[in-house]
Every structure is written in C-alpha cells, then in structure tokens.
Design a protein around this nucleic acid. Structure first.
Lengths: 333, 333
DNA sequence: TGTAAAGTTGGGAACGTTCCCAATATGGAG
DNA sequence: CTCCATATTGGGAACGTTCCCAACTTTACA
C-alpha cells in the first residue's frame, strides 16, 4: 500500500498542495472554511497521515526532547520521567528516554545522537558533561538537579544541601552526636558538596569530626550494606547513620538486621530522596522527600519555553525545598 | 552557524556528495581507501554531522522504536524498559517511551504518533487495542506480556498462569486451604484468566470455593489495603492471601499490621512480580519472580528481526517460566 | 466606479539525504 | 593490443513536506 501524500489529498480535493498543507498545520484563518472542509473530507476519505519526517526536514524541528538520566531502574527517576512526559505530551512533544549509567562515553554518544537526530531540546542530569560541552551541542538544555557548575543553564532540582542539613538537625535534636555518614559518590560534583555540608554542620555545633565516620561509596544497596558494617565495627560505633540516598539506607538497614542491631533502638538510620520502597521497609525509613514528578514537569516546561522564544533570557533556577519525612527508623538516643 | 551538509564536505574533500554519502553509511568496499580517508578528514575538519532526518525521509526508516507501557512509575516497568533500551542501543536504534495509563484514548493517540512519525517498530503492553487495530498500523509490533488474543503477533512475556499455580501450590503445601485472593483487574483480558486459574486450582483439589474470598480491585497499594481488611473481616478469615501483584500484597501487609495481625504467624501473604520493594519489606514478601529485563531485551530483538527480514514468518512466542521466591511472609499454618 | 487592503490560492524552490544509473578508470585474460 | 569484468566516481532525481512569492478574488471605503 503506497503511502498517501499531501499531493494525493490535493488532487482528490481539487486544490493545491499548499492549501492542504495549510489545513494540516491548522492555519485556519488563511484558508476558506469551505475548502478547508473539502480538504478535511479528502483527508478522511483517503486515510491520509502526515509524514512528520518530511515536515521536520523542512521546518528543522522534530518536536522531540531527549531526557538523559543515569538509570531508569533507580526508583528515583521514573517519576521524574513521568513528569517530563506528561508536560511534553500536552504540547505535542515526544520524549526520548536514555540512560547514561554515569558513563562519560555513553553520555557523549547520547548527546551526539540528540544532535544528529535534530532533537529540539535536552533535559539532562549530567554525569560527566560540563556546561561548555553542553552549550556546544547547540540544543536548548535544562539541567536536572542542583549543580553549581552550570551557571548559565536552566535548572530544576531539589536542594540536597538543605536536605542534608534537615536530616542532621533531626538526628541532632534526637540527641545524636556521633553520626555516621554513608556518602554516595558519583562522577558529578555533588559528592564533595555533600561532604562539606556534613562537615560544616558539625563545625557549627563545635563537634569534632572523626573522618572514619564518613564512608564514600557508589550508590547501591550492597555498598550501603558494606558501609554500614564498617561503621558499626568502629571502636566507637555511631548512634545514628545518615545515608546519602534511600538505596544506601536500605542496604544499611539490612546490614544492621544481619548484625542483630535493632533499628531504631540501637541505631537510627536516615536516608534521602523518599523513593517508594522507603515507605514499605520495616521499620519505615526516615528520609527527606524530594520533588520528582514536579521536577520533571517543570524541566519540560522550561525547555519548551526556551524552544519557543530563543531570546537568551537569564537562566532560571527552580530549586525545591526538601521536606523531612520522619518515620520509624530514627529515635531518641 | 549554518549547518554543514554533505555537500560542503564533498566540496572540501574534492569529491561528489555521492561519495561522501557512501563513506557516511559505511559502504567501505565501494570507495577507494584514499578518498575515504580524505572524506573522513574533511568531515572532521568541518565538524560535519549527519542529518538523520533527511536520511530518514529518503530511506523511510527512522531507527526509532516506540515502547508503550501502562506506567513507567509502576516498579515493574523500568527494568523492562531498560532491557529494551540496551538491546536497541546496541543496534543503533533509539527508544521512545510512552505510557498509556491503561486508557484507550491515550493508547490510540500513541499509535497514531508512531505512524505519523514513521517509527520502525512498536513494542507494546496492550491496554485496549486489539490485534486487528494493531496490524492496521502497518508497523512491525511485539506484544509484551501473555495475551491470548494476539495469536499472529510476536510476543514476549511471563507465564502468569503458571505463576499463580506455583503460589497456590506453595501455600497449599504449607497447609493452607482457606486462601484469599486479591485479584487485580485491568482493561485487558488477564483478570478473568487469573480468576480461572484460582478456581481451577481448588477444583482440582476438590475444595469448595467461597466467592467472598475473591476480591477484585485495581492494582494499587490502597486497593490492596482495603481488600485485605475486607478479607480479614470475613466470618472465617483466610489463613493465607494471594495478591495479584506485589503492590497489592504490600498494601495487604500494611492492613494486617494495622489490624494487629502478624505475618506470617496469623496470616501468610504472597504476591506476584517480585518488584524491588518486595525484597525490602519486613517480613520480606514471598512472591513469584518474573523476567523483566530479559523480556524487554528479547522483545527488542524480536522487533529488530522483524524489521530486517520482512517475510511474515510464523509469529514467535517467548514465554518465560516464573520462579517462586519464598521469603518470610509465608509459613506453615 | 476606482483603488487599496485583505482574503485566498497556486506553483516552484528549498530542506539534506539516499538511490539509481551512467561514466570513467583499472586490471586481467586472450 | 583488445575486450570484458570490476572498481570507483559523479550527477540528477527522488523522498514529502513547508516556505516564499506572485496572482487572483473579494471587500471596504472614498
């Protein structure tokens, strides 16, 4: 079955292809209502369907946005992706999802793809790419998350630093002074900034910091498990542990259980992100809630606005304040 | 900055655009190594990047596959999506993710999009679409999941019926005879087939079935919660409960806890799917493990094969056998 | 009634590839 | 040295839109 084109429709309706094109694109005010109806009828009769590829070639816009995140399997991201998608769909845009796995090569490849496929925009949680490289892509971009090193790019994220503060304050107010820290690391700069947050907190409280209480590892349940074991085997084990994200915290909880240490009686554990599983563990996990759907939603709207009016307005930063979710895994010392 | 085209490269390298095109597409055996190098050098010097859109218009292939699932936020799907993506990426294809929310309208809209954007293939967990409609799309398709009503379409999924059997056998062998069933419903036909599986099981065992022990509801934690309460408030509450998926089961566990009923001492609970949260609840949830990543992976390969050789080979069905994951939430009566 | 403005329409030239076919060059066999 | 097969290259015609500009029609107003 040969595909119906705009020209077939034009012939069938007795008009020119220009007119058909106008009808398709909804230029209603510059085509006579009668001819418009005739064209629409012809379209229906022939079962015509617009070839977006051809249109894209001419207009140089694809109505496609690439979303680059580390890994969709990490429970944090699906909600973000959903927010992106819902916002895009509303405006007739399509989301192309891709995972970077925190790998520079993959990320670069994806950016290349975005360029050669002429995607209209990029929403990215950067793994290794820097602002200069991203700008060189020549595609409007929005950063997902809180990154200091993208001063000129639109950004939507959560204030993780404040979240860390909230968690530490929470534990502090429960009487904890010896607080372990399982610090997740990633290729981006967030790791050191998190450590600084931790250090500053104790500096302000005039509490000496034992560097052994800080364990850096990758974000994974096994890593959290191992880190927790290490912490609890210190000569003076902490009375509370703050894990950089909920996955680490869940791993830590498993370790505690295996060691016969009860939560929160013997040790308090707190996480970060408030992913779904955090609410179903037992004891349920105290954590900091981050906006996920909203972040995706607004990032999508940012990018759409950038695409529309190309004037280089001041980069916008939308950073949501986190919310402490106090559950059962933390208690008075 | 005006975009560099194949013609600029040709001029710069002193060859024709045809030759450049050949180099780009990797037709190495029909272009002289020397000219090839010259072209590659010119490409690099000018920073040329292929316009895939233009190529697609000519070749009529986009190297894009649409994945349509109910909801990426449901923990079952991210892994599937990841499998799809990894397999596609390997062959230079791109995944376009979309959620149908089980809504017919959305699903239809997405299929329309796939057609007008000339996607090369569709991988879909069907919500309301039937085989005829899908075939009318004229795009190679693969079904995700186990659906009897797509006899002519390639299919990759898990044998849920067998999974139900395994769970029921497990509970039966633990001594349970009075087993409640929280049956999730969806728009597709799977619901009734699941009920039949339950009914047949007890028929074979010559146990009379109390229809009150079957509660149908949508797949959601709250629904599982409510269903569990209803079951435990029966005059003769069940000694075990089988929930149609893990989300329902987790809801049921919450209900039991709230009612002061301990698991598995007072009641056993089992789920289905083995999503990540099922492993972190406490007690951890007995369930049936389904292939997720693999399903996505093979579905992607099926579609790629379909695209390559268009001969209408016999439709292939790849159904994975489920595996019982016996954890702490089930015990002897 | 004349004229300018606004409303409609059509035709051709892009957009940047790939495909097809013809043309030329090269090499080996007779 | 001729001739045929093979290797290599170039030029034009698609692919199906949208955009631009010109032409024609109608309306508004003096």
């Amino acid at each position: 079955m040969a595909k119906i084109t705009i020209i077939d429709v034009a012939k069938h309706a007795g008009v020119s292809k220009s007119t058909v094109s106008r009808v398709i694109r909804g230029e209603f005010n510059s085509v006579n209502p009668n001819t418009r109806d005739a064209v629409l009828k012809a379209i229906k009769q022939l079962g015509y369907e617009k070839n977006e590829i051809a249109g894209s070639l001419r207009t140089n816009e694809t109505k496609m946005i690439m979303l680059i995140i580390p890994d969709i399997v990490n429970p944090f991201w699906p909600e973000v992706a959903r927010g992106v998608q819902d916002a895009l769909e509303l405006k007739g845009y399509t989301m192309v999802l891709a995972c970077s796995d925190w790998e520079r090569n993959r990320e670069q490849r994806l950016l290349g793809k975005a360029r050669s496929s002429r995607f209209d925009g990029i929403i990215i949680n950067p793994a290794a790419v820097n602002e200069t490289e991203l700008e060189r892509c020549g595609i409007p971009s929005v950063i997902l998350g809180y990154h200091d090193d993208f001063p000129n790019t639109d950004m939507v994220g959560n204030d993780t630093g404040k979240g860390t503060d909230m968690i530490l304050n929470h534990l502090y107010s429960l009487g904890h002074r010896n607080i372990g820290f399982i610090c997740g690391i990633s290729m981006s700069s967030t790791s050191s900034s998190r450590i600084n947050g931790y250090i500053n907190f104790f500096k302000e409280k005039n509490i000496k910091i034992d560097r052994n209480r800080i364990i850096e590892c990758h974000y994974g349940q096994e890593q959290g498990f191992d880190a927790m074991k290490a912490l609890m085997n210190l000569s003076v084990p902490p009375s509370a542990v703050y894990a950089g994200n909920d996955i680490l915290a869940i791993g830590a909880m498993k370790a505690a259980k295996e060691m016969g240490i009860s939560i929160p009686e013997d040790v308090s554990i707190a996480g970060m992100d408030d992913i779904y599983p955090a609410s179903v563990t037992s004891p349920s996990l105290t954590t900091v809630s981050k906006e996920k759907y909203k972040v995706g939603w607004h990032a999508a709207n940012f990018i759409l606005e950038r695409i529309q009016k190309k004037d280089t307005t001041v980069p916008r930063k939308m950073i949501f304040p986190p919310v402490l979710i106090s559950r059962e895994s933390t208690a008075m010392i």
